[in-house]
Amino acid sequence: MNIIYILIWGTWIIFGISVVWALSWAVGQGHMSNVEEAGCSIFDEEEPIGEMTDFFPGEGPDGAVNGGEDAHG
């Protein structure tokens, strides 16, 4: 069973270090500041907040499904 203890503890340590390192790197690079802006980074002027981007074929966007309230809170 010794090999299992090495496996279990070893991977906890490897994974744990990788997670802490990645988190430290992210904080150092400023990825944890202004996170709400990062949350909007998938939108742009051509596919903006408030517009659906996927429909069944032949059932394109219309006023009934697009627009409306988009901000949270």
Partner: peptide, 24 residues
Amino acid sequence: IPKVLGRPIHSYYLSLLGFWTLAL
């Protein structure tokens, strides 16, 4: 989900917390 809806994730802070706790 946000991309198709055209609506940002409800709480981006929570999404990050979710990732780091899953990782740990």
